[in-house]
């Protein structure tokens, strides 16, 4: 099943002394799809990515990247995998262009090919004005873009991006989103770790939830997706909302309000549609009606709550 490529991880564990960074990670990212890797700080996201990136050997389990095992065949994996680390390092004295040329050469491109590729990538990540300035003058967001360009210099089939969006301005985030969608359209498998869940919501096809070194099982995710979540409702005249909700059968103790509107827990989309119809039917001028948190964030918070309960 791994011949086709993509990322395939089965029962992977890794500890550092008595710290179990990753206990049991299992996930699959098909070619042509984007998966979000989501988890609280210290849940083992970076350790997992280091193992996928051929830098750390797992203690147990099996990994396949683009059809190759990172421990047995690191060279084959490296030729097909691009990794953008969460620590942004760049040789300070080299210019942006020289850095990308050097990276291309390290991946076996000839000097000319590396030069062409560098020029192309500088355009892709919009670093033209800084192309011939040394890396040390770059801001955090600019380093981030350089790091992304470096990760894709050899046009890899599998992309591992560790917190690619942190430090980027809204325009750069939008560009990044579009770029990642484009990679998926080209048939690459992309795994993105991020804390910005709303961001991932817009580009990830699937999500992998990691907590305390374990990937959440499909059952747990399914359960969380189906659990009730808050919807935010706003009406032109807020005072008409409370009586209408009571009339629609929503218990008063479940209704809360925040500065943006009224929050009501709703189980699924059918229930939401019925409630909206009832509110409109009772004459409330509804101006806004939607989930208060994104899909990924909902599952993430729900899974963490389960963890806290158990």
């Amino acid at each position: 099943m791994t011949i086709s490529g993509g990322i395939d991880v089965d029962g992977v564990a890794r500890s550092f002394g008595d710290v179990h960074a990753v206990r049991e990670a299992t996930l699959t990212v098909r070619p042509g799809s984007v998966a979000g890797l989501i988890g609280p700080n210290g849940s083992g996201k970076t350790t997992l990515l280091l193992m996928l990136a051929t830098l750390l050997a797992p203690d147990a389990g099996r990994i396949s990247i683009a059809g190759h095992d990172p421990v047995e065949q690191p060279r084959e994996v490296r030729a097909r995998m691009g990794w953008m680390p969460d620590t942004l390092g760049a040789w300070p004295s080299l210019t942006v262009r020289q850095t990308l040329v050097a990276a291309g050469r390290l991946y076996g491109l000839t000097q000319d090919a590396a030069g062409e590729r560098a020029a192309e990538l500088i355009d892709v990540v919009s670093l033209e004005p800084l192309a011939d300035r040394p890396n040390r003058v770059l801001s955090r967001g600019q380093k981030q873009r350089l790091s992304l360009a470096r990760a894709i210099v050899h046009d890899p089939d599998v992309l591992l991006l560790d917190e690619p969006a942190s430090g980027l301005d809204p325009q750069a985030r939008a560009d990044l989103r579009e770029l990642i969608r484009r990679f998926a359209a080209e048939g690459k498998a992309v795994l993105v770790s991020s804390h910005v869940l709303a961001e991932l919501d817009e580009m990830a096809d699937t999500a992998v939830y990691l907590r305390a070194g374990r990937t959440a099982s499909a059952d747990a995710v399914e359960r969380s997706v189906r659990s009730a979540r808050d919807w935010r409702i706003r009406a032109i005249d807020a005072s008409t909302l409370a009586p209408a909700l009571a009339a629609a059968g929503v218990p008063a103790e479940l209704i809360r309000a925040d500065n943006l509107g009224t929050l009501v827990p709703i189980g699924d989309e059918d229930q939401a549609a019925r409630l909206l119809a009832a509110l409109v039917g009772s004459g409330v001028a509804v101006s806004s009606f939607g989930p208060a948190v994104g899909d990924l964030e909902h599952v993430f918070l729900e899974l963490n709550r389960e963890e806290g309960d158990s």
Partner: peptide, 16 residues
């Protein structure tokens, strides 16, 4: 020093 600067690992994932 390169490990501290974060440039060692990015070199190690290349083909050298």
């Amino acid at each position: 020093g390169e490990r501290d600067a974060g440039t060692l690992a990015t070199t190690q994932v290349t083909l050298v």
